[in-house]
Design a binder for these strands. Sequence first.
RNA 1: GGAGACGUCGCAUAGUCAGGUCGAGUGCGCCUCACUGCUAAUGAGGUAUGGGUUAACAGCCCAUCGGGGGUUCAAAUCCCCCCGUCUCCGCCA
Length: 429
Amino acid sequence: MIDPRILRDEPDRVRASQRKRGASESLVDGALAADQARRASIATFEELRAEQKALGKQVAQAKGPDAAEMKAELLARTKAVAAQVKEAEAAQREAEDAWTTALKQIRNIAADETPAGGEDDFVVLETVGTPRDFAAEGFEPRDHVELGKLLGAIDLERGAKVAGSRFYFLTGVGAELEFALINLAMEQAREAGFIPVIAPALARPEAMAGTGFLDQVDDGVYKIEGDDLYLVGTSEVPLAAYHSDEILDTDFLPRRYAGYSSCFRKEAGSAGKDTQGIIRVHQFEKVEMFVYTSLEDAAAEHERLLQWEKDFLDKLELAYQVIDVAAGDLGPSAVRKFDCEAWIPTQGKYRELTSASNCTDFQARRLNIRQRGAEGESNRPVATLNGTLTAITRAIVAVLETHQQPDGSVRVPKALQKWLGREVLTPIA
RNA sequence: GGAGACGUCGCAUAGUCAGGUCGAGUGCGCCUCACUGCUAAUGAGGUAUGGGUUAACAGCCCAUCGGGGGUUCAAAUCCCCCCGUCUCCGCCA
């Protein structure tokens, strides 16, 4: 959630952000009113409570010959106050709940740099490499479904048979490709100072809510039947909740984790989109970078995350573009988001392979993660950022399609050869 | 899955089975000061978080003893639920 102080002191800034995102501006006024009501109810409760405590003390201290009488009288008075306190407490809780509910509906304040508008209003920041010209090379590229079949790497039919549509088996070199990508990603992450992490793929509602994903339960997130647990759509969830309810020492920051986990997505709202192949699936593995840092350093760290993502795509020898995602297409937690989109030859367009978000203190506030303030300063929420190092399925799609050869074989990018143990993937039988 | 024990201020603990002056004692750690040629030792003081009020991170007030609810004028303390940890048994990779 956003900083209540910013809401109170600079409501126009919050309104402008909501407008930029295409979100409701009236939420801001609702939250401001709720804040006033909340503070008033707190004052009422505290006044009564202080009175109750004072009387209670007198009851305990009543001594002497007429103690019994005094006590009886005090008890009568304090009983009435107790009832009032109970009422005021209930009113306060209600006001407090209304306030947090209102506050949570407001999205993070979009960065000045973030383009206004919706999904199509992104700005291309950079284009790296040139899409391969198959026409000039004189052959028609095969899509990853066909290549996957030829190489014995992807089995979609049996994926559907066993688990349904949008499921798949990676077999043979397909499975090996996953391990190679993970190894390459983890190697890079480790060298950059990230701590490798195997994270739980299930999380509690607090962790989901803290990262802003609980709202997507209906169309995006799987819930475990009979348990209060959810399958995570990204290891951002467990990695963010990892330090929840903690106060981190300043020299602990920046803290960088590279989390590896399965990711589960319902894709309920995307019927008809990417129905072929493994571009959009219900389960895939991902290596995610997650950083805790100070608010001041967040924007710079965001750039660093982007650079690490680009480094990885470079290692896969892909052509890609970097876009600055528009405000309306950001998640509720992010102030700015960079997507790296790799060129997919058979689609003739760039598709998202990785994504880096700066969530500033939005998630940290919800998850109660703070950094210890300097001498004389109070503790304050940290900033959290996340970025994909590699999402396996889409990386495989891009690699197979980009580096295919006329006979259906696929050249293995240099960096991957070390981990895959071969230079070319050749069709089976 | 069955049986039991436990969860207190950075750490370790006291307080709970007799409810009130306990936001909470002690030791260690840490910070400041004093003493000391330096270090150590010793002595004095300090050392949680959130919120309200406020110019104030001065003061005052409120909340918080794993979380939530209940009993009571009053709850760390009594009752219920949940979460977590540990031990034993069963099961299992």
